[in-house]
Write a protein that binds this DNA or RNA. Structure first.
Length: 877
RNA sequence: GGGCGCGUAGCUCAGUGGAAGAGCACUCGGUUUACACCCGAGCGGUCGCAGGUUCGAAUCCUGCCGCGCCCA
């Protein structure tokens, strides 16, 4: 393998990190070296994720970018931990969406799919797929997804189609697939049935019209939002215990405009509190009415065709449903039948999730999956803990769903998809054909025209992609998969279906051990991103501007199980700043001889600063591991960010400068510590930000690649509390001196002569040189004359800093500073005295809490005394 | 209508019984030889409201108000 120019040699880091120039080359190299290709014959423990297959028509949006960042982070860490990782990519064929896309392009040529015929149309779809489909796969490469491209799958591929036919046959033979005439959700635009979950409900403005049926004492008023369906009414229903209507139950009433008489039936389903307590019943055009119709043996009268056009004979025939509605109302008004009208009236209306057309409930013959036994098994797998949902709170929602699942309508009146493998014979025979069986031939045999719901095939994804129904090595090695990661909004769409099919097809083995549900992406004001709002952000824009690493880090940094995350341009810029910081820190370290070539010196040969930073690093490793195990990406990102910026860069690098300046053994040890910390840090960051870490780490270590490097482990060294206390003391001292300088208006670069007194008494003697360096304090000369002395209270005592500011100090600023400190100390004293003055506190609170408050009070008192003395000693201005 | 969740700094969010935190934004100062995509110092909060439990409540309980999501 030849080195590409994207791999800089040691100590040759360019001054700035330029992701656009480097990312593509790094990714290509990873793929070429086969790092992402899984080996089914490996002895390593398996770790498997199947990618929720994106839609073949789709392109990468923020939700994908988030989910892919999660999966890539999970798989990269496991790979580094020595697992045999399979992350399997692919796409689903998106029946309706793809057919729509191709029909649109045909419409541009003035043709319809019917002009082409079924066979030619399907060919055309495959051509479309080859040319335009799968844009998202290239976008995944930009993000850095470590997927196994050699195992890419598509739901319409031969092997997966065979899996579909196999499971259909098995379910059919087991009596779990049946054909029945029922009310389904029908999209008049897509001209197909939809399942419940392909319907989105929204509160729309409509009308509520109250209509008098019958006349005189025999009349009854019903309210409806869909007046036009009255043409298909076959009953009026009231609640059986509704006293208003007892005398009418069992009688017949005239349906206006139709001349038909229909019975008034009593049904528990009717809500007596809604409207007049009486409802019209249209069994062929409403799911609830259909059920009432079944219970009362009512006829179902279809008055509309598949395009939503009225077919009932009479004046309304040929009108679209939305034209028919006002026409019917007008006709009723003319007859004095309208009792009340409420307009606008807001109510829930179902829309096709693909094209937003108002869904029409429609009576038709469809294929169904009997979900009850499958759903029960899906619920049990989670109840038993074989599959764990993260966050666990969403399990309840999962149970509510699977325990109340309606049978699943799986037939679609489309041409693009898996055709239902059922043949009908001339004598009314129905034959379901398995994958290796010959369909019945001969006169009069025809195959069912319909195709299967896309979810029917993607529900098989965790095992169809690994060769099922064959018993493949892949299945043996990689099933059940380890984690399924997706947004909580499609828990029901997809997760439940995979659970049902996985348990059914794989002998009760769950399709995944863990389900990680992340939240939805929102804008900086917490609003959902949507086209209509215009607040969407394209992750590709972010990658162009800030790099893939910054994009990934931004998303992961906001990701807690189940909670939504708000993102904005500024967030991405902040992540880019973080990558820049990491770049510069590493560049600085390398420029000063940071190395991993020598082993770390023994602990006793290290400074307090060295031991402190190494201990923090150990804690970081432990913390990152814990957060990975619990899918707490926000917390682990935050921990890494905080360590890198606030501890390593802000403090250790500054302290290292002092140690490097000492030269000799001290400098060499420091170079080793720098090299070691960066080595571990870059490994820890790699799953989140793979590109920049790869570049920095290969330069630092000369190693082959971080992708296949080992995941760090905590050293196990005992934490050095003394070193930690000293560094905390140093920080406090430095911060206080800087604060004084800032308040006094001293320029940051201005050097000031000074003395530090009392450091030995608070165990900070060794830290004094670093304190001086970090506060630009020079050695006092012969003419040193302290113009101010600054007292810094530390846990073990007070350090006094005398400074020669070569002139009068700003007394007003100094008084203000002291007054502020005094106010803080006095508030502290009041709080502590309040507590200690309360006998029930001292009696009942744990002894260590009381002792802590006592210590705090003493410290506050000392501080107050000290500040008073200082204030009095200040010259009067 | 049923269920779940949320209300903490200007914005987005951590913190789930013993000193109110972070990032971004904002103010002031800065050409500090890693970094101005930066450094240093600051400002900013009766933790939605009202009760209760407790020595002690952002944290636990009850009610109310507001917001969101899922289901009907």
């Amino acid at each position: 393998m030849t080195e590409t120019p994207t791999a800089p040699q040691r100590n040759e880091l360019p001054p700035a990190w330029n992701p656009a120039e480097v990312e593509a080359g790094l990714y290509q190299r990873w793929v070429e070296r086969g790092y992402f290709t899984a080996d089914a014959s490996s002895d390593k423990p398996p770790y498997t994720i199947v990618l929720p297959p994106p839609n073949v028509t789709g392109s990468l949006h923020m939700g994908h970018a988030l989910n892919h960042s999660v999966m890539d982070a999970l798989t990269r860490r496991r790979r580094m931990q020595g697992y045999e990782v399979l992350w399997l990519p692919g796409m689903d064929h998106a029946g309706i969406a793809t057919q729509n896309a191709v029909e649109r392009s045909l419409a541009g040529e003035g043709r319809s799919r019917h002009d082409l015929g079924r066979e030619k149309f399907v060919e055309r779809v495959w051509e479309w797929k080859a040319e335009y489909g799968g844009k998202i796969l290239d976008q995944m490469r930009r993000l850095g997804d470590g997927v196994d491209w050699s195992r890419e799958r598509f739901t319409m591929d031969e092997g997966l189609s065979r899996a579909v036919q196999t499971i259909f046959k098995k379910l059919y033979d087991d009596g779990l697939i049946y054909r029945a005439e029922r009310i389904i959700n029908w999209c008049p635009r897509c001209q197909t049935a939809l399942s419940d979950i392909e319907v989105d409900h929204s509160d729309d403005e409509g009308e509520l019209v109250s209509i008098r049926y019958g006349s005189g004492e025999r009349s009854i008023v019903v309210a409806t939002t869909r007046a036009e369906t009255m043409l298909g009414d076959t009953a009026v229903a009231v609640h059986p215990e509704d006293e208003r209507y007892q005398h009418l139950i069992g009688t017949e009433v005239e349906v206006p405009l139709t001349g038909r008489y229909v019975p008034i039936v009593a049904d528990e389903h009717v809500d007596p509190k809604f409207g007049t307590g009486a409802v019209k019943v249209t069994p062929a055009h409403d799911p609830n009415d259909f059920e009432i119709g079944q219970r009362h043996d009512l006829p179902a009268l279809t008055v509309m065709d598949g395009r939503g056009v009225i077919t009932a004979k009479g004046p309304f025939e040929g009108l679209d449903r939305f034209e028919a509605r006002p026409a019917v109302v007008a006709a009723l008004r003319e007859q004095g039948r309208i009792v009340a009208e409420k307009r606008p009236y807001t109510h829930a209306v179902g829309h096709c999730s693909r094209c937003d057309t108002v869904v029409e409930p429609r009576l038709s013959m469809q294929w169904w999956v009997k979900v009850e036994p499958l759903a029960k098994a899906a619920g049990d797998a989670v109840r038993d803990g074989r599959t764990k949902i993260h966050p666990a709170e969403l399990s309840k929602r999962y149970f509510d769903w699977v325990d109340n699942l309606h049978d699943w309508c799986i037939s679609r009146q489309l041409w693009w998809g898996h055709r239902i493998p059922v043949w009908y014979g001339p004598g009314g025979e129905v034959v379901c054909v398995g994958p290796d069986e010959q369909p019945p031939s001969g006169e009069g045999w025809v195959q069912d025209e319909d195709v299967l719901d896309t979810w029917f095939s993607s529900g098989l994804w965790p095992f169809s992609t690994m060769g099922w129904p064959e018993r493949t090595d892949e299945l043996a090695k990689f099933y059940p998969t380890s984690v399924l990661s997706t947004g909580y909004d499609i828990l029901f769409f997809w997760v439940v279906r995979m659970m049902m099919f996985g348990l059914y097809a794989m002998d009760g083995k769950q399709p995944f051990d863990d389900v990680f549900l992340h939240g939805l992406i929102r804008d900086q004001y917490g609003k959902k991103m949507s086209k209509t709002r215009g607040n969407g952000i394209d992750p590709l824009d972010w990658m162009d501007t800030y790099g893939a690493d910054a994009t990934r880090f931004t998303l992961l940094r906001g990701t807690s199980p189940g909670s939504d995350l708000a993102v904005a341009e500024e967030w991405a810029a902040g992540s880019r700043n973080f990558t820049t910081k990491l770049w510069n820190a590493t560049r600085f370290a390398l420029g000063n001889g940071a190395t991993v070539a020598r082993p770390l010196p023994p602990r006793e040969a290290l400074t307090d600063a060295d031991r402190w930073v190494l201990d923090l690093l150990d804690e970081l490793v432990t913390e990152v591991d814990a957060h990975f195990e619990s899918f707490q990406f926000a917390k682990l990102s935050e921990a890494l960010y905080h360590f890198t910026w606030d501890e390593f860069c802000d403090w250790y690098l500054e302290l290292a400068k002092v140690q490097l300046a000492e030269g000799g053994v001290r400098a060499e040890a420091t170079q080793s510590v720098l090299g070691h910390v960066l080595d571990v840090l870059l490994r820890l960051l790699h799953p989140l930000t793979p590109f920049i870490t790869e570049t920095l780490w290969t330069t630092l270590t000369g190693g082959e690649s971080l992708v296949v490097a080992d995941w760090p482990r905590a050293s196990g060294a005992e934490r050095d509390a003394v070193a930690a206390a000293r560094i905390e003391g140093l920080k406090k001292l430095v911060t206080e001196i800087r604060r004084f300088r800032s308040d006094q208006g001293l320029k940051p670069a201005q050097k000031v002569a000074g003395k530090v007194r009392g450091a030995c008494c608070v165990d900070l003697l060794d830290q004094v040189p670093a304190v001086r360096a970090l506060t630009r304090m020079t050695e006092p000369g012969e003419d040193f004359a302290a113009t101010v002395s600054l007292e810094v209270g530390l846990p073990k005592g007070t350090v006094t800093v005398e400074l020669d500011t070569s002139g009068a100090i700003d007394l007003a600023a100094e008084r203000k500073r002291l007054a502020k400190d005094l106010a803080v100390a006095e508030k502290e004293r009041a709080q502590c005295e309040g507590k200690l003055g309360n006998p029930s506190f001292t009696d009942k609170a744990p002894a260590e809490v009381v002792a802590k408050i006592r210590t705090r009070l003493e410290a506050a008192n000392a501080e107050i005394e000290r500040i008073h003395a200082r204030l009095e000693s200040l010259p009067q201005s």
